[in-house]
Design a protein around this nucleic acid. Sequence first.
DNA 1: ACCGCTTCCGAATAGTCTTCGGCACATGAC
DNA 2: GTCATGTGCCGAAGACTATTCGGAAGCGGT
Lengths: 156, 156
Amino acid sequence: MTGNPVLDAIDAAILRELQNDARISNKDLAARVNVAASTCLERVRALQRRGVLAGFHAEADPAALGRPLQAYIAVRVRPHNRDVVEPFIRFVLDLPETLALSHIAGPDDFLVHVAVRDAAHLQRLLLDGFTSRREVAHLETQLIFQHHRKWDISPI
Amino acid sequence: MTGNPVLDAIDAAILRELQNDARISNKDLAARVNVAASTCLERVRALQRRGVLAGFHAEADPAALGRPLQAYIAVRVRPHNRDVVEPFIRFVLDLPETLALSHIAGPDDFLVHVAVRDAAHLQRLLLDGFTSRREVAHLETQLIFQHHRKWDISPI
DNA sequence: ACCGCTTCCGAATAGTCTTCGGCACATGAC
DNA sequence: GTCATGTGCCGAAGACTATTCGGAAGCGGT
């Protein structure tokens, strides 16, 4: 099931098209990858079953939602054990400012990607949201000038 | 038109639903946000026109595609001017390993988010892809244990 | 009240999704 | 070779959905 080593050309094409436009109709998708609509539908469902296609999401522009400023916040958490880490993760993911959170190896423990209204909003988030928490031992913030996300991931 | 400062409750609900499932049918979406299908369709198109909805993308699981290991690569580029930076950005975005690229302020210039097959693959990427380039002055790599992305961004 | 503007709705047509029976081909047993 | 089995693909057809459009309702401004 998960052991299938590679995608064939049609699956790869389906994946590419759906990553570019998740709302394409099944009929159009089938035409683009040169299979019948019924075949295409079954292929898509198989990709979902196998976990290759994990979901479909609309992309909202943070700037259009009043949050044009993005930053990374590197966080060190002490003590770095399960009882502290798990609530911290939940806390960060519940912040409306958070776009993504990584638990990383290195001097810092977490990297939090946030989108905020302006510098004042970022300052408030840092002071009230992060440094006020006991387990937060160290913070380092880097502003993001420009962020590029690649939507189409291909197999290896 | 674009000057409208906030989304009303219906737009916010549409945004939320589409961020959770971009392939929901217009009819179901309309039912969830309590408007007629025709109204819902026009709302969605308006959100696209305004740039709030920037696209619809399938989420592919990098691990299911044979790339279970993720890392951040912090890069310093010298000289840090337009003639060097722009080709570098293009180069990184063309790498199949790249998931995202941020141009940031601070001691490092770029943060590259990559997904690779294993540690050997990462090593090869660093040596052959990055340090072999003239403009790359410094590299720092951090492994990612766990990455959480929030799909539903809300206004402020 | 009246006008102009915007937003919403529901009916109707055009179009799509989804199921299902059957076909074609590959594989392995004998 | 020949048969049985399994897999994947296709196309037809009914069920369902998208999209358009005319008209109604709400809301400020005068």
